[in-house]
């Protein structure tokens, strides 16, 4: 008797909490999507508190196609995957690249964007002089050119300080190629990194192209330019995708189907051009 009572109390609490957040199991009526809300132009918050950006437009589009209702909630990049695993949300969309380490823990949809990585530095710095203006390099199609480009980066960044966001593919790049050559500083947010770049605490910032471009358009960034190779592939992987729990394979399938349709009618490209000014479709 007592245990029955407990069970019903626990179940009641469970159902109540589930209703409160809309996180349903199995029957996907509502899907909760987690993003930073401070990672322009992927996702950012406007002054009315609404999250807008490339990933918001894309998410709304995909959800409509998949026939589910989507709810977007904000959470720091720090703890994004633990948040997914703890059930805080069902999908991560936060400019998250597919990597082998992450694939051990969660599943990914097909990539919806594959922008190159880009370095930024002060216009009149010697890094900018050594590396020259940005030019695309594809490590998947032309590994030799990519090797040469990375060697040039290593030579130019000797003794410099490089800033990346913590636990990103850019941080992986820095620890693979720049750890012994330059000082690598890891920041909680890209915004903090940009501030330190403008303040002169670091010489170079590394991030994905759309994020770098957005920084260059911000106030006080007149002195910054994109320098060196804009690398596709290598540690940056095949692109950014939705992160989904391994137990929710049906949801992954649903969104993959929606993504196929959105690629086919040019919607993804449209959002990309609108928010990134370049076509980043993989």
């Amino acid at each position: 008797m007592g245990s029955r009572l407990w069970k019903s109390v626990a179940l009641g609490a469970a159902v109540g909490a589930a209703l409160a957040t809309g996180a349903y199991a199995k029957e996907w009526k509502t899907v909760v999507i987690g993003m930073e809300g401070g990672y322009p132009p992927w996702n950012q918050t406007d002054s009315s508190g609404k999250i807008v950006g490339f990933e918001v437009d894309l998410a709304n589009d995909l959800c409509k196609r998949a026939g589910v209702e989507c709810k977007i909630i904000a959470q720091d990049w720090d703890g994004m995957i633990p948040g997914l695993k703890a059930g805080k949300f069902d999908v991560i969309m936060d400019g998250m690249s597919i990597t082998d380490e992450r694939k051990k823990e969660i599943d990914f949809s097909k990539p919806y964007a594959a922008p190159p990585a880009a370095f930024m530095a002060a216009k009149d710095s010697d890094v900018a002089k050594k590396l020259g203006a940005g030019k695309p390099v594809n490590a998947i199609k032309d590994p030799k050119a990519a090797d040469a480009a990375i060697k040039a980066v290593q030579a130019a960044l000797k003794g410099k300080t490089v800033g990346v966001q913590v636990s990103t593919t850019h941080a992986n790049f820095a620890s693979k190629y720049l750890k012994d050559i330059a000082t690598v500083k890891e920041y909680k947010t890209t915004d903090d990194r940009d501030l330190d770049l403008k303040n002169g605490r670091i010489d170079v910032g590394l991030d994905d192209y759309p994020t770098v471009a957005a920084t260059l358009e911000s106030p006080d960034a007149k002195d910054l330019v994109i320098v060196g190779p804009e690398i596709i592939g290598d540690v940056f992987g095949v692109g950014e995708a939705m992160g989904i729990r391994k137990s929710d394979a049906d949801l992954t399938a649903k969104f993959n189907k929606a993504l196929d349709a959105a690629f086919a009618d040019g919607s993804v490209k449209k959002y990309s051009l609108q928010w990134f000014k370049i076509d980043t479709t993989p």
Partner: peptide, 11 residues
């Protein structure tokens, strides 16, 4: 600790 957590994804 937060970095190890994010890199290894042990919650």
């Amino acid at each position: 600790a937060l970095k190890i957590r994010n890199d290894t994804l042990v919650t």
